[in-house]
Design a binder for these strands. Sequence first.
DNA 1: GGCTTGTGATTAAACGTTTTGGCAAAACGT
DNA 2: ACGTTTTGCCAAAACGTTTAATCACAAGCC
Lengths: 354, 354
Amino acid sequence: MSGAGEEAVTPKVGIRDVARAAGVSVTTVSHVLNETPHTRTSEATRDRVRSVARELGYTPNRLARGLRTRASDMIGLLTEEIATTPHAGRIILGAQEEASRHNLTLAIINSHLDAGADARRADARALIERQVDGIIYATVFHHEVSVPRELRAVPAVLIGALDRQGVVPAVLPDEASGAADLVALLAEAGHRRIAFADSSIEVPATQGRLIGYLRGLEQAGIPRDDRLITSGVSEAGGGYTTSLELLDRDDRPTAIFCYNDRMAMGAYRAAQELGLRVPDDVSIVGFDDQAPIAASVHPALTTVALPHYEMGAWAVATLTRLIQSSSTSWYRSTHPTLLPCPVVIRDSVAQNNR
Amino acid sequence: MSGAGEEAVTPKVGIRDVARAAGVSVTTVSHVLNETPHTRTSEATRDRVRSVARELGYTPNRLARGLRTRASDMIGLLTEEIATTPHAGRIILGAQEEASRHNLTLAIINSHLDAGADARRADARALIERQVDGIIYATVFHHEVSVPRELRAVPAVLIGALDRQGVVPAVLPDEASGAADLVALLAEAGHRRIAFADSSIEVPATQGRLIGYLRGLEQAGIPRDDRLITSGVSEAGGGYTTSLELLDRDDRPTAIFCYNDRMAMGAYRAAQELGLRVPDDVSIVGFDDQAPIAASVHPALTTVALPHYEMGAWAVATLTRLIQSSSTSWYRSTHPTLLPCPVVIRDSVAQNNR
DNA sequence: GGCTTGTGATTAAACGTTTTGGCAAAACGT
DNA sequence: ACGTTTTGCCAAAACGTTTAATCACAAGCC
């Protein structure tokens, strides 16, 4: 009579309920439901078991299974403060989808950046208690890091950081190449005076972008001009002041490569205040492809995207490989994997005509 | 000799190893480690057990424990495409931190928005197989939704959606009040001609903001003027065109309330092209407090923040309450919970002097 | 000295699976 | 008709915990 659920309170049907209803042993049920190899069951009983299981709405208890098989089919994602950044979602998403593809579930724990090493180790331990088959450790700045000792208890991979001992596989964005590609793009558009508005705070990422910038110049046969290399705080404000300075000269650059998209926003404003049009009078490019800035500014910003999704997916992919092979061989990572940062072309660079 | 880990391959120390080493039964170990109430153990053995456990590096196996106690201490977060949006991270973060606070672990599954109801039900089932103690179902648009039937098997709460049957607790941002507050702010600054640049696509969120706008006007004693209510696509481009139209009249509004921050960016551009300064000539406000736009534009945008973090935290908090009480009383949600959207004041509104 | 009462610890039965090692019966070869 | 192989299935032992039910023993009481 009631409009609610018909099926009452489903008193948890287990494998033996299925066995009983199908008139077979639990062993048989397990065999057919898991399609265990090297095991024989007649087609007839197989069908029977399956249909009974479906009718009863049997859902296996993965805890129990994990207990027996010593594999939880879960992998832990340990992020340090990363869930906070706008980028974070992409890493999580990439990891999650790849995990789903392998029939794994993702358990997430976020460590505060300011939390000590102890807290981080406790977080790792919490995952291990849950018997995760592997752990992904994702950091937002890619510095060298000595992984919590507890991580050694279980296969692990690093995102955005390098293991100091070089024993844990790691993945990083290839920012240098991305930056070089961006410079190449500008050079092809005829730009020779390309400024670089660097970030004044020293994080490893800075190096990659600067290095890529220099490499790009070299490959384009453009001599390095240190007067075109400036720096400011990596926010819109910093981009504004440094760009103002760069553009307010007679021999102003025809293009500015900003350390990130936020600085590029500041560069836009500087150009505008000086009566310079983007991209006609000056081309501006950024880095990060930070949603929703890059696509929302006018003109839309040409920039370089970070492979967050791909890093997340790479992490669980190699982690599962690691897990499968862990019993036999032990993986020793040689070099970190670098994932490409694709240039995304929008409307902020024009052919240079000076 | 090898430089690697000293502690060999730690052959997994279990509770009986501790018991054996401490010379007591596993029962006793369990009792002292869990501080089980109504149980007696001498201080001496308690100390012994604890120190032995620490020395051996014992880590309990939560799978086994969960199997016995029929509680996994995990809660599932089922998001539909939400991990994609920039906002998502905040929801996840809020849920994660509240979960940590309760010693729970968060398992995340992301359903594609375009995936059918079947896929969504499969995702729910995957979580249930893992014996999660409860499920949070988070959607990005808050429409009414009929929760997958499988969710009934376990305590659940909704984020950003309403249960059509009204049986599952839900939490939503109180966008109407946020919008009204924003209008109040403008009114207090002396604005009387306040335009609203609505989103032309019809999602429920639109309603709340428009309703709040109207309510705000009414409360400020400002008569509604439909010529000031326009709409456009909810991107920078849409904000630009509608604002251009609004501002290019003799009786132009002194303030524009944009449906979201991206439209506000467009409004900035429109104002600039018309030679109007923000906020001196026209005040502009947005909605969403979308990072990093709102803080990066110039002048920094006054807007309304969505309580993503708070919704995530609220969800696991009420979910745990639900779980605890589930055996005894059954919760019936009356109204959805509305969480406040605080106005965040920056530099884009000025006193009106016309 | 016998009876009760506490105290500190133990035994054994779950929990829901998978998996090892078998066993009966049918099929087969001769 | 008799060994052998194959087929189809099952019993029982794990997996690592928690927990209900006891138990040994000393102390307290008269």
